[in-house]
Write a protein that binds this DNA or RNA. Structure first.
Lengths: 215, 215
DNA sequence: TAGCTATAGGGGAAAAATCCCTTTTTTCTT
DNA sequence: AAGAAAAAAGGGATTTTTCCCCTATAGCTA
C-alpha cells in the first residue's frame, strides 16, 4: 500500500510544524507522508511543477502573496485530482461558500480536536468529504436559498457613506454634495434598510467591514 | 531542578496541541511541563485560581470572550510574577506597543522557526526577555520618540468602546455596564479628547483603525 | 397612456448625542 | 488621617440623528 502524500500550505511556520507532528502522532500505521510544505500559494505552485504530487493539500486561506482562494482556483485548473482540505480561522460565510463552490473536499476550523483532524484526513483519503458544522450549516442555508443577495448601492449612496464615516453632520454632507439635507436623510434611510443597520455608527462599521470604504 | 511550568492560552485547539508537541520535541532534558491549556482569557482565569501556577504563559491575542490584552492586564494585576510570552499573528504596531507597555517578557510572531521558539522559551525561563525583530523595531522607533502618541486607555474606556461601536444607545450601554448614563457620558467625553475625535462615528472609526476593537 | 419606480425634497417631532458645569464617592498618596 | 486625584453621577441645554408621513418630477414600461 502506498503512502498518502500530504502537502501543507500555510504561512505560519509553527502551525505547519505542529500540524506535522499531530498528523504523525495519530498515524501509527505510517500511512501518511508529508510531501512538502509551502508558505503561500506561489511557493506551492513551484512545488507542484514536478511530480510527485500530493494526494491531499491542507490549505490555509489567509496567506501573503497568493492566498487560499487563488491557490485552490489554480489547483482546480491545473491539478483537478488533488484533494484540498481547507483549514482556517475564517468562519465567515462568504469564505466558506466560495470554497465550497470551488469544490474543496473539506472545510474545517483550526480550532478542532486532533481526532477530528484525523477523521477529516481519513475521510478525504477514502475519497470522501469532510465539513465542519459551520460549513455544513452554511451549505444548508444556502441550498434553501434563504441567503445570498449582495446588495447593490448607487454611486450617490457610496459617496454619502464616505462622508458618513467622518465627523460631518448631515447638513454639512448635504452642502458638500450639493443636495438637500432631506435627500441625504433619504440615503441614510435607504442604506439602513439595505444594510440592516440601525445607526450611523453601525453603518460606518458595516462599511468598513465590507470594504465599502477605505479605513 | 524543578521543571518549568508552562501554560498555553490560545483559542485554536490544533495550534495548542501542535505547539505542545513542538515544545516537547526540543526538550530532551524534560525541563518543560505543560501545566494547562485555555481557550481564552476567562478559562485561563479559572485555572489561575488555584496553584500550581505556571512560570510562563504563552498567550495569543486574538481570542473570544477575554482577549490577550485583557488577559495580560489581569495577569499583571493578580499574578505579577508570571511571565508572558505573546505569540500572535498580529504584527500591528499598536498591538505590539500595547503589549510591550504592559511588560510582557516576549513578543513573537507565530510564523517563526521552531528553534526560535525554543530560544524564546530558554531566554524567558532564564529570566530574560525575547522579542521578535518586528517588536524590537517598534520598540526602537518608539524609544526614539519618532512615533508615540498612543494614548493610554482605562479598562472601562476600552469596554465602553466595544459597546460604542454597536447600535446600543448610551442608556443601554450604561445599563449593560451597570453604571449611570452620566458616567458613560464622561467616558465618551474623555475618549473624544484623548483620541481627538468629535463624534461617536469617528470614535468607532478610530477604534477600528487602531485595533482597539475587533471588527 | 396610466401606472410604476427611482430620485429629490419637505414638515415636524421624538430620541440620542453632545456639551458644560457642578457634586459626590472612591482611591491613592504622603 | 488630611488632601489630591480619579471615577461616578447629576442638571440642564443645545444639536444631531432618526423616524414617519407626504409631494413633485422624470423615466420607463405594460
Amino acid at each position: 500500500m502506498n503512502k498518502i502524500q500530504i502537502a501543507i500550505v500555510d504561512d505560519h511556520n509553527l502551525f505547519r510544524k505542529g500540524l506535522i507532528r499531530l498528523i504523525n502522532m495519530g498515524d501509527s500505521l505510517q500511512r501518511y507522508n508529508i510531501l512538502f510544505e509551502a508558505d503561500n500559494g506561489n511557493q506551492m505552485k513551484e512545488k507542484m511543477k514536478l511530480s510527485p504530487f500530493p494526494d491531499i493539500i491542507l490549505m490555509d486561506i489567509d496567506m501573503p502573496e497568493l492566498d487560499g482562494f487563488e491557490s485552490v482556483e489554480w489547483l482546480q485548473r491545473t491539478h483537478g485530482d488533488v484533494k484540498v482540505l481547507v483549514m482556517t480561522m475564517l468562519e465567515k460565510e462568504s469564505a466558506i461558500l466560495r470554497m465550497l463552490r470551488m469544490g474543496v473536499k473539506g472545510y474545517i476550523h483550526k480550532d478542532i480536536e486532533v481526532a477530528d483532524l484525523h477523521a477529516a484526513l481519513e475521510s478525504i483519503a477514502a475519497n470522501g468529504i469532510y465539513y465542519s458544522e459551520a460549513a455544513t450549516e452554511v451549505m444548508q442555508q444556502n441550498l434553501n436559498g434563504l441567503n445570498n443577495t449582495t446588495v447593490q448601492l448607487s454611486e450617490k449612496e457610496r459617496e454619502f457613506i464616505k462622508f458618513a464615516i467622518t465627523d460631518m453632520t448631515y447638513q454639512q454632507i448635504a452642502d458638500q454634495m450639493n443636495l438637500s439635507v432631506k435627500t441625504i436623510d433619504g440615503y441614510r434611510e435607504t442604506l439602513f434598510r439595505k444594510l440592516h443597520v440601525k445607526t450611523r455608527v453601525t453603518l460606518a462599521m458595516h462599511a468598513v467591514k465590507h470594504g465599502l470604504v477605505e479605513l
